[in-house]
Computed example of a mutant assay.
Amino acid sequence: MSSAVSRVAAANSQEALQHFEALLRFETDCWDVHHALSNGRQDFVLLDVRGTSAFEAGHIEGAINLPHQRINEQTLADYPQDTLFVVYCAGPHCNATEKAAIRLAKADRPVKKMIGGVTGWIDEGFQLTTQNPAEQSHGQ
């Protein structure tokens, strides 16, 4: 007797390896982002792609708010072409990260999705801030 889990056979090891390695080319997680931010190893731009009011209510410290609808060549102009963008939104129930990633990929920009978004960040025990990056850089 088989379960709903095993009814469809698992991929062979080589297929599984290719699949899971490919996922890491498209995704990162809250722990890896937190580690990079807290250890001075941030080699990416963290974009909060939610609306401005959601960002102001609480976001990851150091994130830049760029709602997915506003991602275009003009809003990206200040970043070198090879800048890696890591996008996040509210959480697994939100597809703003995919919308943002599509816009970035169409602009020929490297992009990864931070899986879990704000929900995952909080679930991992990490804090949000309400201070915006401009205020942070001015020490306010």
Rank of each mutant, 00 (worst) to 15 (best):
V45C: 12
H59Y: 03
N65E: 02
V33Y: 08
N65V: 01
I64G: 01
L17W: 12
Q18C: 10
R25D: 13
D43L: 00
R25F: 10
A57C: 04
T28Y: 10
E27Q: 12
T52E: 07
F44S: 06
R41D: 05
Q42G: 09
L37E: 01
A54W: 02
F55H: 12
L46I: 06
H35M: 14
A57M: 12
R25E: 15
T28K: 06
N65R: 01
H19I: 13
D32Y: 10
T28R: 04
H68E: 02
V45M: 01
N65Y: 00
F26G: 02
A63G: 00
R50V: 00
C30L: 03
G58Y: 00
F26M: 04
A54M: 04
H68G: 01
L24Q: 09
P67A: 09
Q18L: 13
N39T: 06
E15Q: 15
L46K: 06
E61V: 13
E56A: 08
Q18W: 12
L23G: 03
L24S: 13
T52P: 09
A36R: 12
Q18S: 13
E15V: 15
E27C: 10
H59T: 03
E21T: 15
H34R: 12
P67K: 01
H59G: 08
T52L: 10
D43V: 07
V33W: 11
D48I: 00
H19L: 15
L66V: 04
T28S: 01
G58K: 07
P67I: 07
G62L: 12
V49G: 03
L47S: 04
N65H: 06
D32L: 11
R50Y: 05
A22H: 12
D32G: 14
F26H: 15
R41S: 07
N39A: 07
N39C: 05
G51W: 08
V33K: 01
P67N: 11
D43T: 03
V33R: 11
L23F: 08
R50W: 00
H35S: 14
R50Q: 07
R50D: 00
S53K: 14
D32M: 14
R41N: 13
W31A: 11
V33D: 04
R50E: 02
H68R: 11
T28G: 02
E61I: 06
H19M: 14
A57Y: 12
S53Y: 05
A54D: 11
R25A: 15
S38D: 09
L47K: 02
D48C: 00
H68P: 06
H68W: 09
A57I: 08
L37Q: 09
G40P: 05
F44L: 02
L24D: 12
H19V: 13
